[in-house]
Design a protein around this nucleic acid. Structure first.
Lengths: 251, 251
DNA sequence: CGACCTGTTGATGGGCGTCAATTGTGGTGG
DNA sequence: CCACCACAATTGACGCCCATCAACAGGTCG
């Protein structure tokens, strides 16, 4: 695990926030934009395989992901790992730690990532001065809860093949909603170990399940990643309806 | 599934809210109390085994549980059920539906339950007029997320015996924090089918795992319920640290 | 070049699912 | 009052899904 390497220059002033160019994200009005801009402390750029937040620590910051992939996980005392969700551009991370003290999970990157940094202590002023934005923060927390429900349903009640199909469909759906492929073929930057730790399966069995989806021509396995060939059939195979969420907020 | 039977009389004006008597919940000041009191639409009393909220529906209300047990679950198209969490006094339910439209899960009671009813449409005025309370709503959502992370870790990475031990310890811990046993022996009002659907196991295997905990003298199985004999050993067996949460908000 | 990571495949065994039958209990209607 | 049924718990038999162990191939990097 590499240390996050912070850089101080601000490549993305809020007025040119890369997220604002995406249609999925709602617009800010001038006043909100000014406020958020003042809230912003800086940017953080980290490498691939870096730990952004660590379980058991206290971090004075909140982040919004601007670019890159990552995942959120927990460990058992003996080292068994469970990935609970993935993070992508527009996701707010570190909120749990801000509200409840110590972090209860860790976050690691799957690609280089840049994040927008906010001061944890300023969160209350956001609630005081911008109820609309506060509402949005709650909305984001609620959406995360919704995804966790889905993942739990999957791990608890789907077969290995269904689980894998669901996971790939879920990630592809989320990622393309925020324009991570824009046009090119969907490619998820994961190892099979990541899949295994998300699905609650062993690495070996995950591999054998991956092979089955490859043989069905639903995916192709590339250098360190999974190329998605048929999103609809993956969703159908898992019995999942990828309901489109429409416009959504971000901070 | 029985229909919820609504009653209109208000047995618990906010000033005498049964939750306020509990030490775990924080105090309101007068202004907040007045505001919440105006927000309150009434009370809902439902029987055991009633469906309070149903997946796929839209409900104009938000609820805070005042008394009773329940659980939150999702279904696969073919009927497989996954219980994602349990609800107890002080829990805010229906928030997801309020923020995101349709309910993505259902809630059913395990005992008679009384709930405090709020109008969904008033939520925004709470955010505008009482930032502190808005912050608390987010806090509650965040806590739910934290519990889901734990449950996902459990289902994904623990063995059947560890999973069951964790679940029982987790529920006992939560329930005694809100004073559901006050003094008497901890008794969880669940069937083994509920356990199975929470743990991601079959009913038969759940039964055999329950027997193992009974033989270890950690629990005793009663008429439709599980009596907890040794909470500490259950937690230790599952490798879980039941960190005490301290004072917490409610609405 | 050797160490390491990632993917792959085969062999073996155990944990857990499925099927099936039995018991006990409470509720319901004849 | 009792036959009947539904539900919850329990237990045994059987087999499959998936974990574990092991070995190997290819690629990357120091």
């Amino acid at each position: 695990m590499k240390e996050p390497a912070a850089r101080s220059e601000r490549k993305f002033p809020c007025e040119q926030c890369p997220l604002m160019r995406r249609k999925v994200f709602r617009d800010f009005n001038k006043k909100e934009l000014d406020f958020v801009s003042r809230l912003k402390r800086g940017e953080l750029s980290v490498d691939r395989s870096a730990t952004v937040l660590a379980e058991g620590t206290r971090n004075p910051h909140l982040y919004t992901v601007l670019m890159g992939w990552g995942f959120r996980y927990k460990l058992l005392p003996d080292g068994r790992r469970q990935i609970v969700n993935y993070v992508m551009p527009g996701d707010l991370i570190g909120l749990q730690g801000s509200l409840m003290g110590e972090m209860q999970h860790s976050i690691e990157t799957l690609s280089p990532m840049t994040l927008c940094v906010f001061e944890r202590s300023e969160l209350m002023s956001l609630y005081r001065e911008h109820p609309d934005l506060a509402y949005d923060v709650t909305w984001l927390a609620s959406r995360e809860e919704c995804m966790l429900d889905e993942n739990l349903l999957s791990v608890g009640r789907r077969t290995a093949l269904e689980r894998l199909a669901y996971l790939i469909a879920f990630l592809t759906n989320r990622a393309s909603a925020v324009g991570m492929f824009n046009g090119s073929a969907p490619l998820l930057p994961l190892t099979q170990q990541h899949l295994a730790d998300t699905l609650g399966l062993s690495l070996v069995h995950t591999n054998k399940t991956v092979r089955k989806l490859v043989q069905k021509n639903l995916i192709r396995w590339r250098d360190k990643g999974c190329e998605v060939l048929d999103l609809d059939q993956l969703a159908a195979l898992s019995g999942w309806d990828p309901s489109d969420e429409g416009i959504r907020p971000f901070i």
